[in-house]
């Protein structure tokens, strides 16, 4: 099964308005910058997609990637654990002006809610956030004399992720700490679009080295020598 997309523009061509969109990466590591920028290009050319709910650990940095999506006005709501950082002006300005919604989720709960959707588990219990304002309104339960909070799976219509090696069946590896949320989001979204640095023939990746099996990936596009978010932010690049 060949899932190769001929271009970045093609890879993101069928993401409609108003969807819930997972975007991989933690800080600048593992962020699919080229896919995000292709989506921004489409928005600038056609006005779509807009009113997006974006799920990421952070809320964008500098003036590229998710921050540029926010600045462009494509994002209605962020679901994340840590929107506050030194270069998060794009989100901060809109949030403080009441122009963007925020759902704040503890980082491990965010990861597990994404994993749970990918694994088909609608709810689970975690000790995280018990007794805090982030648990308000959520059911609690005692197990072995300890209190736990019920959390629901987190769904997405699409995921944009970044792998390192990939093959046309969608098998993926990741580079260094760039793995982070990418394998979880690949599992959780209805449709997963992956950019990879090296698109190789099936059989080129050792089956024992595959981190994300191709069943979780719908489209794959090669981006040789991808841009690195942190490097772009440090250079002050504006997209």
């Amino acid at each position: 099964m060949n899932k190769t997309s001929p271009s970045l523009a093609d890879a993101v061509s069928d993401i409609p308005d108003g969807v819930q969109l997972m975007i991989g990466g933690f800080g600048g590591s593992g962020a699919p910058i080229e896919l995000i920028h292709a989506l921004i290009d489409r928005f600038r050319a056609t006005g779509s997609p807009k009113n997006l709910t974006v799920i990421n650990n952070n809320a964008g940095n500098g003036a590229i990637g998710i921050a540029a999506m926010i600045k462009a006005g494509m994002v209605r709501k962020m679901i994340c654990s840590f929107p506050r950082s030194s270069n998060a002006e794009a989100f901060n300005e809109k949030y403080l002006a009441g122009e963007i919604e925020l759902e704040l989720i503890p980082q491990g709960t965010l990861a597990e809610r994404i994993r749970a959707r990918g694994a088909g588990i609608p709810a689970f219990y975690t000790p995280t956030s018990f007794g805090t304002e982030l648990a308000e309104g959520k059911p609690t339960e005692t197990f072995d004399d300890k209190m736990y909070v019920q959390e629901l799976w987190l769904k997405a219509d699409f995921a944009l992720i970044k792998g390192h090696d990939g093959d046309e069946t969608g098998n993926l590896t990741y580079r260094l700490a760039g793995r982070n949320f990418n394998p979880l989001m690949a599992m959780a979204a209805d449709r997963t679009i992956a950019q990879v640095s090296n698109l190789r023939a099936p059989g080129s990746i050792d089956p024992e080295a595959v981190v994300t099996p191709g069943i979780f990936v719908d489209k794959i596009v090669e981006v040789p020598a991808p841009q690195q978010e942190e490097v772009l932010v440090r250079r002050g690049v504006v997209y």
Partner: peptide, 28 residues
């Protein structure tokens, strides 16, 4: 620095022999 190799504070790190990578759900 290799900015794909960072810690939770988004600072660049190095690896010691025996290091490993894993996704966020395994991490938590």
């Amino acid at each position: 620095e290799d900015w794909d190799l960072i810690n939770a504070g988004k600072k660049a790190i190095t690896l010691k022999p025996g290091a490993s990578f894993f996704h966020h759900a395994d991490s938590f």
